[in-house]
């Protein structure tokens, strides 16, 4: 049963990811990305991490993707033609994009990883919250600082060009 669900989710994920990368219109890429995120959240759920799955939905799908959609709507005319997809562009991308993960997979297949779960049930929200505020207090604060900096930076970058007429 779980294998079946995982299979469906994998198909969903990779279909979405492929759409996100291969399709020529950015909007379609985004939809594909959203689809693959749903699949990914499902995979996290299969792994037993409800919280991470929900965060993937809430932040990646509800936050980042929506923001990307917003950016695309603000910046890309619908008729914009995507760059030509010539062999000299696809080939190196394919080479590196396949080569590097091939190396990784070869390495990890050669390695000896545990094959059975250590824990059936991953800890939930409460334990994660406690860990965030005790063991990982410092990185947690650092992340919040990073987010603050990112927000300020984003505002600053977006605002500066607003004052300038077409350059």
């Amino acid at each position: 049963m779980l294998d079946l669900a995982l299979g469906i989710l994998i198909v969903l994920t990779f279909a979405g990811a492929t759409m996100a990368v291969v399709l020529k219109k950015v909007f379609h890429n985004l939809l594909g990305f959203g689809l693959s995120l749903v699949g990914l959240a499902g995979i996290s759920l299969v792994l037993g991490s409800e919280f991470v799955a929900l965060m993937q939905l809430l932040i990646f799908l509800g936050g980042i993707t929506v923001a990307m959609v917003f950016a695309v709507m603000m910046s890309t005319p619908r008729e914009q033609s995507e760059e030509p997809r010539t062999a000299d562009r696809v080939a190196p991308a394919l080479l590196v994009g396949a080569g590097f993960p091939a190396v990784m997979i070869a390495l990890l297949l050669g390695g000896s990883f545990p094959t059975s779960p250590v824990t059936e049930e991953l800890f939930g929200v409460r334990e994660i919250g406690l860990a965030l505020l005790t063991t990982f207090e410092l990185p947690f604060e650092a992340i919040s600082l990073l987010l603050l900096a990112a927000i300020i930076g984003a505002v600053a970058v977006a605002r500066r060009t607003r004052e300038r007429p077409d350059g």
């Binding site: 190196p92 590196v96 080569g99 590097f100 190396v103 990784m104 390495l107």
Partner: peptide, 13 residues
């Protein structure tokens, strides 16, 4: 990115 990953792959290998 390609160069960086190439180096990383070499190192990993």
């Amino acid at each position: 990115l390609s160069i960086a990953l190439g180096l990383l792959a070499t190192g990993l290998l």
